[in-house]
Design a protein around this nucleic acid. Sequence first.
DNA 1: ACTTGCGATGTGACCGGTAACATGGCATCA
DNA 2: TGATGCCATGTTACCGGTCACATCGCAAGT
Lengths: 350, 350
Amino acid sequence: MTDRPHKPTMRDVSRLAGVSRMTVSRVLADPSLVAQETRDRVLKAVAQLRYVPDRVAGSLSSRRSGFVALVLPTLMNTNFADTAQAINEALREADYQLLIGFTLYRSSEEVDCIRSLLTRRPEAIIITGGVHSREANALLLESGVPVVEMWDLPERPIDYAVGFSNFEVGRAAARHLAGLGHRRIGAIGPAAGGEARDFRGEDRLEGFAAGLRECGLPDGLIIRNPDIPLSFTEGAQSISRLLDLAPDVEAVFAISDLQGVGALLECQRRGIRVPEDLSIMGFGDFEIGRQCVPSLTTIQTDSRAIGRQVAEIILNALAGQDGRETPRPDALRDIGFTVVSRGSTRTRTP
Amino acid sequence: MTDRPHKPTMRDVSRLAGVSRMTVSRVLADPSLVAQETRDRVLKAVAQLRYVPDRVAGSLSSRRSGFVALVLPTLMNTNFADTAQAINEALREADYQLLIGFTLYRSSEEVDCIRSLLTRRPEAIIITGGVHSREANALLLESGVPVVEMWDLPERPIDYAVGFSNFEVGRAAARHLAGLGHRRIGAIGPAAGGEARDFRGEDRLEGFAAGLRECGLPDGLIIRNPDIPLSFTEGAQSISRLLDLAPDVEAVFAISDLQGVGALLECQRRGIRVPEDLSIMGFGDFEIGRQCVPSLTTIQTDSRAIGRQVAEIILNALAGQDGRETPRPDALRDIGFTVVSRGSTRTRTP
DNA sequence: ACTTGCGATGTGACCGGTAACATGGCATCA
DNA sequence: TGATGCCATGTTACCGGTCACATCGCAAGT
C-alpha cells in the first residue's frame, strides 16, 4: 500500500530513455518495430521505474479492452468451474482477461450482470444456456460483439453456441434405464416455477419424461425440487421424497451427478442397496461420481472441451476482425454426450 | 453482433437531451445533483438510445477502475469457489467487479498473473496464501493499493490477512486423533518439491507432524504426493500408498476433505471398514464430506466468512480513502477453525 | 436595492495510452 | 546523381468519460 508520489507513466519511461512516448509504446507492443539499441534503453528504463503499463488507458485509446465477459449461474457446480478454467487458460494465451459474473440462476440477476459487464466493453460475451429474458436478449444483440451461448443448443443462437441438447440427454437417460428392463422409473430435478430456474435441468427432465412415454412407461414419478442450485444435500432430500412416494421405484435419473451422488449416499444411509434394490443414474460425469462406491452411471459431456471450443470460436471471431477474413466457424457446435454405464445401474432381475 | 455505426456515447445522449455531457454524467453518477425535469429528459434519452456508459473511459478519467483483483490457485477446490462467490456478492453491492486470475499453485504463474492484473489498475488485491515469491511480493508492495492475503495467517502480512494458522490446524488434527487413543497415525498431503506447491497444505502437514511428536508419536507415516492440485482420485491413490506402506495404520489425516473423501471411498472399495478398521479425518468441511457414509470428521473453517471479511476490509479501506478517515481495521483476522467430529473417526478399541 | 449564497448547469483541461500520419536518414537502383 | 523506398522515430489528435472551476439565475438576508 506504499503510496508513491504517482505511479510512473509511459511519459516517465520515455523521458528516462530519451525517446518519445510512442517509441515506448512500440517497444511494449511489438519490439521488432524498434532498433535493438533503443529497445534496450527503453526496457532498462521500464525495469528501473518498475513501470506497469495502464491497460485502462490503452483500452480506451485502442478501442480494444482485452476483456471477455463470462456469465455463469454459479461456481458451486464443478462443471462450470471446469469450463471457466478451460476458457481462461485458452484466452490468457492471447492475453485476454475474463470478466466473470454470476446469475445464481436468476433472470433478474442475469440482466443486471450483463448490463454491468457491458460497461466494461468486453470484446466477446459468453453466456450459460440458451434461454434468456427478452431484455437480456436485447442487450446481447445490441452489444456489438460476438455472443457465445454454451451448455445448451438453442434452436436459433444469438451468434454461436457450443453445447448439446439437454432434452436429448434426458431422453437418452430414459431409454437407457428402460433398456435395462426397469418399469418403475423416477427422476429428480429442478422445479420450473420459482425465481431461480435451471432451464437446462428442466429440459433434461422434460426429455426424460418424453423418453419414458416413448417407451410406453408412465412419467409420474418425477420429483421437482425448487431449491436451486442443486447440491448433494438436495439430491438426498429429493430421493427421500421419491422413496416415500414410491417405495417400489426401480431406477432413478438425477439431472445432475451432484444430486445423483447425494441420492446414492442417502440410499446407503437407508440401507437401500444400489444397484440391487435401486439403479441410479446421473449427469455430468463429476469426479466424485467416478470415485464413489458403487461408481455412478452417468451421461458424460466434456466440460473442458466446451470451454476450449468456446475460446476457439472467440479467438477466431476476434482475429477475423483485424483484417484477414476468417471463415465464420459453425455457429452451432454440438459436442454431444455419452452414456457411461457404471456400477450404480444394472439390469432388472425379476 | 449487429454492428451499429457506432455505439452511442455520452455526447449523443447529451445532444438528444439538449444538455451538456457533464449533466448526463451527473444524472448517471448522482441524480440528486440534477433538477427533476432535466433528469427525466436525460434518462429518456439514455433509454431511447439504449446508452450503456463506458467504464473504460470513466475509469481512466476518475482514476477509479472499480476493479478488485483476486488471485486464486484454482476453482477445482470448492472452498475457493465458495470464497470467490462470497467476495463477489459483497463487492458487487458496491459496484466493484472482480478480476480473477489463477496460479494453478505455481509461483511463476502467480507472478504473471499479478502483473497482468495490475495493468488493469485494480483498487485492491486479494491473494490466496501468505507465501509468495520475492518478485510477487515486490509487485504487491509497489502496487499502491491495499493487499489482502487470505486462507493463511502470515507472520507479517503485506497489508491485511484473513485466515487461520494452517500449522495449528494440522497440530489440532494430530492431537484429535491421538486423543482418540490411536498410536499408528498417518497423513496424506502435498509434496514440497515440485513446481506446483500447496504451501498451506504443506503447513498443515508440518503442523500435523509436530503435533504427533508432541504426543510422543512417530511421524513416519506421512505420504507426500506431488500431484497438485489435490483431488478425490489423488486421495484414493495416496491412501493406497499409505496402506501398502503400513497396513496396520489406525488413523489418517488428509489435509483436504477432497483427499479425505477419496481415501474413504478407496477404503470402501478395499473392504476396509471406516471407522472400525481405520479412522479418517479431513479438512475443509466440504458438503460431500458431510453427506458421505460415514460422514467425514473434519476441521471446519468458514469459506464464505473468509470471503465476507475480505470484502469488508476492502470496502472499508477504499471508503477510507475518499475523505473521511476510517479507523484501520485489524490487519490480521484469525477466523479460527473447529474440529468437527463425525462418523469417520472413533476411539480406538484395543 | 445590494450583497450573499446556493442550486443547476456549462466549460475546458486532462486521464494515459495508441492510431495515423509525418519526418528524416540512409541504402538501393535506374 | 536524383528518385525511390524502407526503417526508425516523432508529432498530433483523439478515445469517452470526469474533475475543478466558472457561470447564471434566483431567493433570502440586511
